[in-house]
Nucleic acid binder design. Structure first.
Lengths: 202, 202, 202, 202
DNA sequence: CGATAACCGAGACGGTACGTCCCGTCTTCTC
DNA sequence: GAGAAGACGGGACGTACCGTCTCGGTTATCG
């Protein structure tokens, strides 16, 4: 039997009827996030989430269109999405720092596994794919593009650069090693990526 | 003999006893490949493969460790893997041609969807991940690295380049757009990738 | 969305606040009766009744103790209960007429199916069983007993007859064929029942 | 019984794969019968039966078309169906004895409740209704008719009697009191039923 | 060259999870 | 306030596959 009582002060009896929607949502999301970190996408089951959250499966089905959508929401609930992007005058340093930070995130925390599995699930779950693009990859890509654009404005980079493709060649290269781990994803690798490109971009 | 059913009018019905292992394997792989192209990884089920192949699930479990491994083998059976890599004297043309061909493969044929879903499945299926690296991504990466190495030997590229990272910045960038389709994967995009890099690599 | 507007002048949106209790009750009962005739006890659901009546399930739970009780009330609302029992001087004719009428009721109208299903439901629903006895079978049995008693008083039947048992042997025999349809319930059967008994009752 | 492996020391762990069908069927039926006697048709759930039998729900769905069919089979498994019908020279005694025995069966054992609930369920479950007629009520009715026929042949009853209707007026009257308990089902009632009829039947 | 062992198909088994339906309870908002 | 609206926890439904296991039958191999 699943027993999951994160807060000991709400011990046993919860009413059968309606509870505030926000509270239920929060509990479901927390349970989803924790389950995701604990077991990964395999083993991430609506049934288990419902059991851990003390909620009904029906409630989950009403609010999330797919298992992936719930997982994504749960992930964001547990792993606070830090979108900060330091913008100093040195574009090379900025890119390198950001890229290195990303490498450490996906390598040294549980986030890496979760992200890769979310992307994996998204290949067969259009709802998740759309949500992922809209809420995760899209904003991050935009941030990086913005940084590049500012550097172009400052004259640090050639003005005719296709920023989007540069993003694919920096972050996309890292995702490549994350998702198809022929070779390890290291800090040096991240630095090399910037190096390779920067000569042509200036 | 109480019952006599000549083979001709019961084409479907195949004997129940032992058949040559190779024949069974071949039929299973063909069925797997066809099912994969027809329905994608979702809907790709060992049960369905067994039914299409007229084989027993038990037989499949004996030879393939996971659903993904079977799918990968089935894919290779149906989609003949062309590994040719034209190697002219012009490294830029070679890279561009190869990259553009890749873009067309994943965009204009069913292969793209299958590949992305195989990679997706590999995120939670270590057996498949290993097989994919060993039999698909590894050889292709090696081929590209080899081409770059030859260009370096010919003096067309700087000798201190990390070829592997370049591969990630060309093919990995394409995979990025394939797997996280924030932006479309176009022929122009492929050309831009080479452009961006080549200035710094020479 | 369930939309069920029996009267055209209240087309769609009815206010959410309080409405007269009697009106609500009436609408619920009508909806219950119609649903009962339309779908039988299977498919008779408090949820559906509420939706058809434009009422809240809560309101139903407040007034009816069980699904069966609601169904019974609904049945009485739609099928007006005719309790008339012609009482001529001829006891044989009276019994036969009444019995034949009963046979036609349960055979040629939807009432038969509903009654049998109500009795069926009553086997596991004590509330319904009690209500059914009190409001349906009890009064009818009393009427029949009364008729027999009058015939005894007139000297048409022996005075030491147990009228109740006779009712069971007439109507009960019909219910037997209704509920356990080994043999059809026909008009001839009804006549035979009276025949069989009358010889001993006189 | 070719094989008998009395491994009493491994009662708990049962293999995951296929087990002899007959053994599984037997366990399911026993569990069904016990659950039926314990909780009645309400509370009789395929899920519970599966759990008690240590079987999969799928297995049950494969063999029984409806909940009622399973309940009926389970009932027969636990309550051995005794069809004996003593046939002495005295038709009155025979009928009375059989009827009184029936009254005691349904009044003094759990069988009564189960039978009534099975009949109840049969009102909305055609599969069960058919099975009940074929396997329970039909044979019993036939036995009674046979007895009556023999008595007619012996000259104890008039030869133009409709035996079937007599059965309805004896057993059907009892079922009437069982299913619609306006009045109690007593031994005296059973004797009265025979009394009422016999005068006219001779 | 006929017995036998290997191995396949067929498919049932215990499970897990799915997505749906309805129950009876409870809260919120409106008239 | 009473009633509609409707979400909530719960439980059972029937389905789809999973991975395991037994059975019956055929065929290749070997005595």
């Amino acid at each position: 039997m699943a027993e999951f009582t994160p807060d000991a002060q709400t011990p046993a009896r919860r009413g059968r009827g309606r509870r505030p929607a926000d509270q239920v949502r929060a509990e479901i999301l927390t349970a989803a996030g924790e389950l995701l970190l604990a077991e990964g996408m395999a083993g991430f089951t609506i049934e288990k989430v419902a059991a851990h959250a003390g909620a009904s499966r029906m409630t989950i089905y009403k609010w999330w269109p797919s298992k992936g959508a719930l997982a994504l929401d749960g992930y964001f609930t547990v792993v606070a999405p830090t979108l900060a992007f330091a913008d100093t005058a040195d574009i090379v340093a900025d890119l390198t720092n950001q890229l290195v930070a990303f490498v450490h995130l996906v390598r040294d925390t549980t986030a890496g596994r979760v992200i890769s599995q979310l992307i994996g699930q998204a290949q067969t779950d259009p709802e998740l794919a759309a949500a992922y693009r809209e809420r995760y990859s899209g904003p991050r890509r935009a941030l990086a593009v913005e940084t590049l654009t500012r550097a172009m404005a400052r004259g640090q980079l050639r003005p005719d650069i296709d920023s989007e493709s540069v993003v694919d060649q920096l972050w996309g290269a890292c995702y490549h090693r994350l998702l198809i781990a022929d070779l390890p994803l290291t800090e040096d690798f991240a630095r090399t990526l910037v190096d390779n490109l920067i000569r042509g971009l200036r």
